Amino acid sequence: MTELGAHAASVNVELFNATQQQQVIDTILYVQNVEFKVGLSLEDQPDLLDIETHYVATGGQFWVALAQDGRVVGTIGLQAKPNGIGILKKLFVLADYRGKQTQCAAKLFNAVIEFARSSGIVSIVLDTPSIATRSHAFYKANGFREIPQTEVPVKYDYVDRNSLFFRLDLI
């Protein structure tokens, strides 16, 4: 198995548990601010301080991708909103685990889709910084279409970094 193949085989997606909270925060802040220079603080993202309340308690869920050694190398969350709407949040994967070779983002995304379908969510929307062009390509390749902010079917909090909005209808 190649080194990259070893990464792919070692990534396991699991439901978040509270013991992983600091690793989740560290992973997300690192990708946002060191790799992509978006400039977001933890204070800008209070959901990271209480994932249970912001995701699970309202009918959504949060997942982590773990390397073979148990390190958090990726994250994704889904907030459940009324009328079958889900908000995709916090899809982040460390650079060494990105790309088709590892399938880390795809595994995280598939966990969200499976959960959404089983939970009665019929549309998923998301916001992403306009500079995150690689993310835009990933979302489009997975069936999302870009929509104007005026077509976002639910109000929710997000940190506006010249954001673009995307929607995926599951039915």
Rank of each mutant, 00 (worst) to 15 (best):
Q22A: 14
Q22L: 13
Q23S: 11
V24G: 12
I25M: 00
I25F: 03
I25P: 00
D26V: 12
D26F: 10
T27W: 04
I28A: 08
L29S: 01
L29C: 05
L29K: 00
Y30N: 08
Y30T: 08
Y30P: 05
Y30G: 06
Y30S: 06
V31D: 02
V31H: 05
V31Y: 04
Q32R: 11
Q32I: 08
Q32H: 12
N33H: 05
N33I: 03
E35H: 10
E35W: 11
E35A: 10
E35N: 12
F36N: 09
K37Y: 12
K37A: 12
V38I: 15
G39C: 07
L40T: 05
L40E: 03
L40G: 01
L40Y: 05
L40F: 02
S41P: 01
L42C: 04
L42G: 05
L42Y: 03
L42W: 01
E43T: 15
E43L: 15
D44Y: 05
D44K: 03
Q45D: 07
Q45W: 11
P46D: 06
P46E: 07
L48F: 00
L48Y: 05
L49H: 04
L49F: 05
L49E: 13
L49K: 15
D50Q: 06
D50V: 04
I51Q: 01
I51G: 09
E52K: 12
E52L: 09
E52D: 13
T53H: 09
T53S: 13
H54R: 09
Y55A: 02
V56N: 07
T58I: 15
G59P: 02
G59T: 07
G60C: 00
Q61I: 13
W63V: 01
V64L: 14
V64P: 03
A65L: 09
L66E: 10
L66D: 13
A67S: 14
A67F: 06
A67E: 01
Q68G: 15
D69P: 00
G70P: 03
G70I: 15
G70C: 14
R71K: 15
V73P: 06
V73R: 01
T75P: 00
T75C: 14
I76P: 10
I76E: 07
I76Y: 08
G77F: 05
L78C: 07
L78T: 02
Q79R: 13
P82F: 08
N83K: 13
N83L: 13
G84R: 02
G84T: 02
G84V: 04
I85L: 00
G86Q: 09
G86T: 02
G86P: 11
I87L: 14
K89N: 11
K89M: 02
L91D: 09
F92D: 04
V93E: 03
V93W: 01
V93N: 04
V93T: 09
V93A: 04
A95N: 14
A95Y: 12
A95D: 12
D96S: 10
D96F: 06
D96L: 07
